[in-house]
Amino acid sequence: MMWPSSQASKILTFLLFITILYCICMDTFLFLRIQNYKIDIYDVPENATQETSTQKYTQLENYEDVTWVPCRINPLCHPTVKALMVDHINHYIYGPLCAIVDIGLGISETMLFITPNIISFFHVFVACVGAKLITCQNLAVRRLAVVLFQLRMFLDDLDGHVARERKHIKGERSEVGTLGYWVDGICDLLGVIAMMVGILLYLKNNPPRRGYKGTPVSTLPYHQLKEINTSEDIEKEHTTEVGISYKTKVSFQRIVQVLGLFSGQMMLSSIAWNRYIDVYQDLLENCTEYDVFRRATMFKSGLFFFATALWRIVNPHSYLHLLSLAVFCDKTWGFLKTVHYSGYICLVIAVATSEYLVENIRSYVVS
């Protein structure tokens, strides 16, 4: 290991706690920002006839006038449908970092030879290197692979940021059907496949073990069966008074099944996440013929914020962040075994909530 396990556990626990607290605070600030300030995408037209609504809307302040954090690096400045559905790490951490790196290096303004597609192709290469490292038995090397996969996700954010800056687009947007949209999606898919293949090869070469605590084995009930997830756990069990008797290793077929179910969650989550971004954008942002005040009302509603918050948790990027944390903590198999079924329940809840909300938005806005 790179440092003593007790020290690593304390540091990781502290960082995880700080990150969760930071994301909760930022979500709260984002909700208050949406409720109390103007939204860029709902500019009131000059020929608006709803005087009461117009007066109420125009009385709201511009968020840019009151915030002390420059809007170029402030993730709260330009809330959009996609911004509300992007996972917390990408939105609140990698997004501002991309803006800072872009400002420092001048990628959008001066380094025009670096296109968003070149950045996308490069993060596929980074993912392939990370996939190779993640197959190694040495934990320190696998942790380096996690760092590379996080770098890949940062570059995935950077290509979108550069594309929006060069097109002078404010806030997160999905330009469905464009060349950049498909290149970015295919490169993301290749990066995820590389990570899954690397984890599969690692688990194949280092399969988890099953064993019975205590002796003799034949006298123990089945519910005392325990899976040993790492070599560290195996050594720890050897130090107990009762010892442990190993049964068979987890079969490769079982490993493929669990990893396949997890990969299926990611695939379904990606499809549904992109679908609802597209649907919400059409109803609330792109269809300007719909009443602006009704669209703004739905965008500011607590139900819409709750529905999009669910996708912050179950979107494919969140899955990758959690999997990266599990690999870093050397608990890959334990994480996959825990979520390979339960994750589908969370996904069904998110889809059902979104379907209900889509129908409500359509019936309210279109009418």
Rank of each mutant, 00 (worst) to 15 (best):
T19I: 14
N206Y: 14
K247L: 15
C136I: 00
L323C: 01
I20S: 04
L148N: 06
L158F: 11
N206G: 11
E355Q: 13
H88K: 13
V279Q: 07
A131V: 07
C346K: 08
I89V: 15
E109M: 08
L12D: 01
K38A: 01
S9V: 13
S53F: 08
T308S: 09
V81F: 06
S5C: 12
K204S: 10
I234E: 11
T49P: 03
P75N: 03
P79R: 00
I119C: 07
V314E: 07
A326D: 03
S363I: 05
Y356N: 07
V292K: 04
I199R: 02
A272K: 03
N205F: 07
D40R: 03
E285D: 02
S367A: 03
S120T: 02
T338R: 14
L325I: 15
W182D: 07
G185A: 03
T52L: 10
L151F: 15
G180F: 05
G95D: 01
K132R: 13
I18D: 09
F29V: 11
H91Q: 10
D102L: 07
D184C: 08
V183E: 04
N36R: 09
T297K: 11
F328T: 01
Q257Y: 12
E64L: 02
P4H: 00
V327M: 04
A140T: 10
P208F: 13
R143F: 04
Y37W: 06
Y92A: 06
F17W: 13
K170F: 11
S231T: 14
L190Y: 04
M153F: 14
M298C: 09
S363P: 02
T13N: 09
Q50F: 04
E232R: 15
V339K: 06
G171E: 03
Y222A: 12
R166E: 15
E355T: 08
T19H: 08
H78E: 02
V101D: 03
L32P: 03
S245W: 09
P96K: 02
A140F: 06
R143E: 08
D156C: 09
V162N: 12
K331E: 09
T215S: 14
V101P: 11
I244M: 10
Y202V: 12
V314N: 10
F14C: 10
Y344L: 13
I107L: 10
T332N: 02
I34L: 00
S324T: 05
L200Q: 08
H91G: 07
L179W: 07
N138V: 12
L179D: 07
R312V: 15
M111K: 14
A352Y: 11
V146W: 01
A48M: 02
G264M: 09
I34Y: 02
I89G: 10
Y57L: 04
V250W: 09
G177T: 00
